[in-house]
Each structure stands twice: as C-alpha cells, then as structure tokens.
C-alpha cells in the first residue's frame, strides 16, 4: 500500500463529514412532512405558505451543504 497516514485520515474525515448530510436530510424531510400534514388539514392555506416552506427547506439544507463543503475541502483542498 502506498500513501501515508495523513492521506488516510483525509479520506476518513471526508467520509465522516458527509454524515452531516443525513441530518440535513432528516431536517428537510421533517419540514416537508409537517408542511404536507398541515396542508392536508387546511388545504386552502397551503399555497400561501409555499414561500415559507422553501425558505425553511433552504435553511435546513444549508447546514447539510456546509458539511458537504467540509468533505470537499478535506478531499481536495487540505
């Protein structure tokens, strides 16, 4: 085997960092699911809340993107 221990640590770290994306997935799913539950209870109010839905999803997703970014940085930039 070639490479060194630092290389290995880099890859392991990148892999670990991608786990954060799972959290973002949970968050986004939570928001979308709750929106759907609310929308089914009161369908007439749903279209007015689409903007809030997307903003909430964007905020939740941004944190996942941060961990993805960390993974990329570890892989390619460190």
């Amino acid at each position: 085997m070639e490479g060194d221990i630092a290389e290995m640590g880099k890859f392991i770290g990148a892999g670990l960092a991608t786990m954060g994306l799972g959290g973002a997935g949970i968050g986004v799913g939570h928001i979308a699911g709750n929106f759907l539950a609310g929308a089914l209870r009161n369908p007439s109010a749903a279209p007015g809340q689409m903007a809030n839905l997307f903003v909430g999803i964007a905020f939740a997703e941004a944190l996942g993107i941060f961990s993805f970014l960390i993974a990329l940085l570890l892989m390619f930039a460190v």
Binding site: A58, F59, E61, A62, I65, F66, F68, L69, L72
Partner: peptide
C-alpha cells in the same frame, strides 16, 4: 456565507 455556499454547494454537489 450560507446564502452563497448554499447555491454554489448545491450546484457543485
């Protein structure tokens, strides 16, 4: 930060 990284990160990913 989040405003810019979100867009670039999504597209890049």
């Amino acid at each position: 930060v989040s405003h810019s990284i979100r867009l670039a990160g999504n597209l890049m990913a």
